[in-house]
Simulated scan of single mutants.
Amino acid sequence: MTGTSYAVTDVMTRTVVAVRRGAVFKDIVRTMRRWRVSAVPVLDDEGHVMGVVSEADLLHKEEVRDGAPEGPARPLRPDDLTRAAAATAGELMTTPAVTVQADATLPQAARTMARHRVKRLPVVDADGTLLGVVSRVDLLKVYLRDDEDIAEEIRREVLPHVFADTAEPVEVRVRDGVVTLTGRVPDPALVPVAAGWVRSVDGVVDVDCALTGPRDRPAPDTEGAPRS
């Protein structure tokens, strides 16, 4: 509805640490440690995302090591043993990779993370080429948006659509992302609609809706009127 909604491309990290499918186990560990990341995308020769190697994928090798006094924490499956024997990114990676398009909205990215229980997503174009990575903390950047920028979008993009016939202007104040709406509107039934639309504006933390209906019209003065 609003014209300036943030997309993943607006908040993603463009400097991405990735490995090729032939990267060996120790090089993957060194890369993660050097760049302080918990997972890396695995790319083919054209830069397309093939999968992701995470710390959990690497720890399969430690989990099934011979001689561990306490034994494995859970019964091992054939796939666990296969992963434990893997030596390259192509063998270790989880595939297909869970990715997100650069033009996806921030709520779409958040839902994808929640659904797949991941903390970050490779960002790709329509061909699957890696463009960046978006993390949970990147999605929170929208809440650093300037208060007056939020207020101006509400005045421009929300109020004219909800209260097109309002005689008195609705006042919008934003402080630390919390929006306060005050004023009188012709139809009180539209107040929750306005509050819902305001909540959908990027950067809004909460809405305090203090809108009221039109002023009561005084009853007609019938005193002194001729009686029939």
Score class of each variant (00 low, 15 high):
44 D>C: 03
176 D>R: 15
47 G>A: 09
224 G>Q: 05
227 R>W: 12
205 V>Y: 08
210 A>D: 14
228 S>M: 08
16 V>E: 05
152 E>F: 08
9 T>F: 09
94 T>E: 05
177 G>V: 02
57 D>Q: 04
8 V>N: 02
50 M>V: 11
143 Y>E: 12
113 M>N: 06
89 A>P: 01
127 D>F: 06
37 V>T: 11
6 Y>L: 15
65 R>A: 11
59 L>V: 05
96 P>C: 06
49 V>I: 07
208 D>V: 14
206 D>C: 09
41 P>W: 02
98 V>T: 14
1 M>W: 11
105 T>K: 00
224 G>R: 10
175 R>D: 14
85 A>T: 15
153 E>D: 12
216 D>L: 15
187 D>G: 07
10 D>W: 07
112 T>L: 14
66 D>L: 14
134 V>T: 10
195 A>V: 06
37 V>C: 06
181 L>D: 01
67 G>P: 08
138 D>H: 06
66 D>F: 14
211 L>I: 04
138 D>R: 02
75 P>C: 05
114 A>T: 15
154 I>F: 09
5 S>F: 04
209 C>P: 00
34 R>E: 11
48 H>K: 13
134 V>P: 01
207 V>T: 03
3 G>T: 00
163 F>A: 06
118 V>L: 03
191 V>L: 12
76 L>C: 09
16 V>G: 03
165 D>F: 12
46 E>P: 05
192 P>V: 03
174 V>M: 06
176 D>W: 09
146 D>E: 11
172 V>P: 02
193 V>S: 09
43 L>N: 01
84 A>C: 04
111 R>V: 13
14 R>V: 11
24 V>Y: 08
95 T>A: 15
8 V>L: 06
158 V>I: 00
85 A>H: 14
175 R>V: 14
139 L>K: 05
167 A>Y: 13
217 R>Y: 11
227 R>E: 15
170 V>Q: 13
134 V>R: 00
155 R>K: 07
163 F>M: 06
130 L>V: 12
54 S>E: 04
65 R>C: 07
76 L>G: 07
79 D>Y: 15
184 R>E: 06
24 V>D: 12
77 R>S: 13
114 A>W: 03
109 A>R: 01
198 V>I: 10
105 T>M: 05
95 T>P: 01
113 M>H: 02
216 D>F: 09
36 R>E: 15
169 P>A: 08
55 E>K: 06
210 A>T: 11
53 V>M: 04
185 V>A: 01
64 V>H: 04
157 E>N: 00
56 A>G: 09
184 R>S: 13
144 L>R: 14
31 T>M: 10
24 V>S: 04
139 L>N: 00
55 E>S: 10
129 T>C: 10
87 A>F: 11
202 D>N: 12
135 S>K: 03
18 A>S: 15
196 G>Y: 03
93 M>L: 05
32 M>D: 11
72 P>V: 14
51 G>A: 09
47 G>F: 05
196 G>T: 14
124 V>K: 02
140 L>W: 10
58 L>R: 05
191 V>F: 05
166 T>G: 14
128 G>V: 07
4 T>G: 10
86 A>Q: 12
227 R>D: 13
105 T>F: 02
